[in-house]
Amino acid sequence: MTKYVFVTGANKGIGYEIARQLAEKNYHVFLGARNKELGQKAVESLGLENVSLIQVDIADTESILNSVDEIGEVTDNLDLLVNNDGVVLDINILPSELRLETLFRSFEINFLGTFQMIQAFLPLVKEANGGKIVNITTDMSSQTIFDNCDLPQLNTLGYNSSKTAVNSLTLAFGKEFESDGPEIFGVTPGLISTNQNGNVPLGKTPAEGAQVIVKYAISDKSYNGKILNEGGMIPW
């Protein structure tokens, strides 16, 4: 039986690697991308028959609902929803210099977008046997880890706090799903060296980060309501 996964923000970076690794494990991957042209290039680059493009802007309710309909034309269930899409808009911007509109946009996409995706796709995930929702978060969403961090470029109030909010919604949905819902949990892949974070030193490659996420996504063990890194649960 074919297993289906929808990975948002999958035309590049860690999302692309998550899509590739799951496709190689014989999932049918719906590769989500805001930009249709870039998404199609990513699909062509992967060159795998079990990968198809879904255009979705998670900050746009209508776009999310359209993606539900499009996937619903292929399958009536979704084994995995990987909420990877997000933005980092305040690298090297001090909290005192952060513009309100930038902070708002961070929450609009990272938090409200993830919230809408969960609500919209919940019926499809519920229909799957053992369906899961995986929210991609960051080490810096943990107040404990952030307090001990000495990398100044990671003091990104907009990104970090919006991901802390994602952790909170993961816990809230996890409480709701305990009795009769699907499994939901958050995973931080660890520090990834990208141009989004100023190529932070000692970071993983996107492929290495994706391995952490895929390991939990396909695990038989339940992590409902938990926030995890490669070593297990992380502190708040």
Rank of each mutant, 00 (worst) to 15 (best):
A172P: 03
W236F: 15
S179W: 09
L191N: 10
S168K: 15
T75I: 08
T144H: 03
P123Y: 05
K204I: 13
N135S: 14
Q40W: 10
S193V: 09
E101S: 14
I192C: 10
G130A: 10
T205G: 13
V214L: 02
A10E: 02
K204M: 14
I133T: 13
D220N: 13
E101N: 08
F111M: 03
E230G: 00
Q143K: 11
D79Q: 04
S168L: 11
F173K: 02
G130S: 10
I54E: 00
T205H: 13
G86W: 02
E127M: 12
Y216F: 03
A23E: 08
V87L: 05
R34M: 08
V5G: 14
V68G: 11
N84L: 01
S142D: 06
L31T: 12
T138G: 07
V166L: 09
G190V: 06
T170A: 11
T114H: 05
D69F: 01
F121G: 04
G113D: 04
K3L: 00
V200N: 08
I91M: 01
Q21C: 07
D90S: 01
I227V: 07
V88I: 12
Y223M: 02
E97K: 14
S67I: 11
D57V: 03
T205K: 15
T144G: 01
D57L: 04
